[in-house]
Structure formats: structure tokens, C-alpha cells
Design a protein around this nucleic acid. Structure first.
Lengths: 198, 198
DNA sequence: TCAAATATCTATACAGTGTTCAGATTATGC
DNA sequence: GCATAATCTGAACACTGTATAGATATTTGA
């Protein structure tokens, strides 16, 4: 009776809430956030459409839960990429900074439908997004650049908004076919120039 | 019989195609591109739902037509803003450049639902977007900066992608509530630094 | 001028959608 | 073990995109 998560009775699902979120992700990935059907999500999990309403107020609420999940996942991808950098000192700070941007861009390009869900107005992200892993990594990355002597603390001011704007903007425009993906390194170079880097 | 556009018979509409596009814009403006209903668009025009299928293959096709229309409109807003600058010489070049960005940002903030339709994957913009007014204005603006001696032609390289990425990214992030709108001037300053401007 | 041909729109129908609500089923606490 | 609570189902409602057949208006050609 303690292992309710393992026992899968036909009626009670165990953890329907996260199962719905994961199924929704799988469908959005394939068909896009518009074209997502709550009924299809329920069917994927093997549950009746009404069941979802025990965990989510409506369809938009499920989509928002998906958005939060994915926003965290994006931060984790960046963290993973950063952790793989083996260099130390100034070289390490630069490589970690670039790895962060590359991971962001790479994720956006490989999962355009998920990326659009997060940043296309489909979900309401929490107001406390400044506590998110992605944002904190960005702050830390900039701090590291200052500490390594690669940028001045004067140029660091407002660095978060500039970097995020450029990287997000480039990712979005490439996804929508308005910019070739080869432009991304140019954008990164431009950001570094604007930070007075090196 | 020559003035069919003026005569509004009950059966034939005159210019249903553009009427549908305009009605769709009006509805997207209010309720967002998701939540747009072809039936509601038809009802707004006072026509049966099937009538739309004489001008558009399907709903997505109508949305794409809306996207093209709005993309042009955005360019026209920028052109208007530029034309209002009265200064000449280097001062004029700088003010026109900034007016272009401000107009873009202002439009995005005042019409978030329309902005999302264009850049959120709802419509397929034509491959020839490099012929668009918005893009050509951007190129011309950068050329003017070079000609006015405000940036070097070396720094001009890749300027389009950098500027557009930053301005679009900032607009998008502000719209989605991920960045305060006060950050926009900071982004502009950063872009100018990356161009080595002034 | 007047029928034939064409363009334009309507009516109806179908499968699928989000959502609600009463009730069936399973788990939990005493 | 039984009442209670948590969880899920089934049926229903109004709505959606879309296909098809037919009605209506306009244009064409003689």
C-alpha cells in the first residue's frame, strides 16, 4: 500500500498531473502549441478528457504548467553545457559564457515548437522569473567575466537585458525563417563588442 | 454596373478577401492569434463560414495573409517615424536610426497580439522578406550611419542581424513580461556600442 | 436583349474541440 | 469495516474547421 506509484490500477493513475504535462510536451513538440488538443493529451495518457480538470483549471492552465517546466529545462541545458567547460581562468569564463549562449540557441533551434510555447505568449510565466536558473546563470556568467577581467563592471551594467535580448531575438528570428542560422556567431560577436569584452 | 465596389448587394460582398483579413486583424488584436475563429471572422463580415474558402485554402492561409499585411504595416510605421525627423547630417542619421527602433518597439508594445502573430510561428512569412520595407529601412539606416561617419564600414558588417535581433528580442521579452520596458533604452545603447557608434 | 456560363455565397453536415456536471469507482481515515 | 474523500468516467452542450451540394447574382457572348 506504500507503493502506489508503482501499482497502476485502471482507475487511479498515480501521478496524472505530471503525466499530462509530459504528454502535452510530446504533442506540442510535434504539432505546435496552437493545434494542441486537451482531448489528445488525455487520450495519450489513457484517461478521459474530464480527468485533466482535477489538476488544471482549463487548457491554458495546463499549457502554462508546460511552459514553466520547459523554462526550467532550458536553464538546466545551459547549466549542463557550462559544466562541461574544463578551461579555467579568463579562458574558462569566456568559454562558459559562450557555451551558455550556444546551449540556448541550440535548444531553440532543435525544439522550435517548445521554444515558441515559452516565448510566444501561450503561457503565463511566473513573475519571479528572475529566480529562474537561466537568469541566475546569466548573472553569474557576467559576474565571472568581470572577475576574470574580460569586461569592466561599468560595461556589465545592463548586460543581462542586452545579452538576453540579442540571443533570444536571434533564436526567434532564425526559427521563424527570417534570419539564417549562420548569423548567430555574428550576433554573439556583436554582444561581446557591446560589453567591451576582451 | 461599373461601380461594383460601391453597390453592396446582399449576396455579393464586393471585396470579401480584404474584408476578411481586416476582420481577422480586429479579432486577433483583441483575443490573440490562438483563439481566432474563422467562423467569428465570417460573422464579423456578415458572411457564411464557407465563403472564406473561396479566397483562402484554410484558416492558416488566412492567418498568413494577415501576417504579410501586418509585416508591411510595421514597416510603414517605421517609415513614418523616420520621415518625421527634421534634423540633417550626422544628427539626422542618428535620430532616424533611433526613431526606427523606437517605432518598432512602440508598435510591438501597443499591439502585442498582432506582434505575436507575425513572429510567433502563426504565419508563414514570404521567403523574400529581405525585400520588405522594414528590412530595407534597416539597411538604409545603417548605410546612413556609415555615410555620416558615425560608424565604420567594418563595424557595419552584420549590423542588420545584430540590430534586428536585439530590438526584436527586447520587444518580445517585454511583451511576455520577462523584461521591464525600461530596459529598452539600455538595449539600444548596447547596440550602438556594438556598432562602435559615435 | 436574353439565355448560358461563371463567380460568389449559403445550407447542411461531419468529426473534433473545450468544458461542465452528475455519477461511478477506488482509496483513505477512524 | 464503513463512512468519507479523492479520483476518474460518461454524456451532454455549444463551438470549431472544413467538405459538399446547391442557391443566387454577375458576366459573357450571340
Amino acid at each position: 500500500m506504500a507503493q502506489k506509484a508503482l501499482l497502476k490500477s485502471s482507475y487511479h493513475h498515480g501521478d496524472l498531473e505530471t503525466a499530462l504535462v509530459k504528454a502535452a510536451i510530446s504533442l506540442v513538440r510535434k504539432y505546435g502549441a496552437d493545434h494542441l488538443s486537451l482531448r489528445a493529451v488525455s487520450a495519450e495518457v489513457g484517461v478521459s478528457p474530464s480527468a485533466a480538470y482535477h489538476y488544471f483549471q482549463d487548457k491554458d492552465s495546463l499549457v502554462s504548467a508546460v511552459g514553466e517546466f520547459l523554462f526550467d529545462q532550458l536553464g538546466e541545458k545551459q547549466e549542463l553545457a557550462i559544466s562541461k567547460v574544463r578551461s579555467t581562468g579568463a579562458k574558462g569564463a569566456r568559454e562558459r559564457f559562450e557555451a551558455m549562449g550556444d546551449a540556448y540557441f541550440k535548444w531553440a533551434l532543435s525544439e522550435p515548437n517548445l521554444y515558441r510555447l515559452i516565448f510566444g505568449g501561450f503561457c503565463e510565466l511566473p513573475d519571479s522569473h528572475n529566480d529562474s536558473k537561466a537568469w541566475q546563470l546569466l548573472e553569474k556568467g557576467l559576474d565571472d567575466l568581470v572577475q576574470a577581467g574580460l569586461i569592466t563592471s561599468a560595461n556589465r551594467v545592463g548586460g543581462e537585458v542586452l545579452v538576453w535580448s540579442a540571443v533570444h531575438g536571434a533564436s526567434s528570428l532564425v526559427i521563424e525563417g527570417l534570419m539564417p542560422k549562420e548569423s548567430f556567431p555574428i550576433v554573439i560577436k556583436g554582444v561581446q563588442r557591446s560589453l567591451g569584452m576582451k
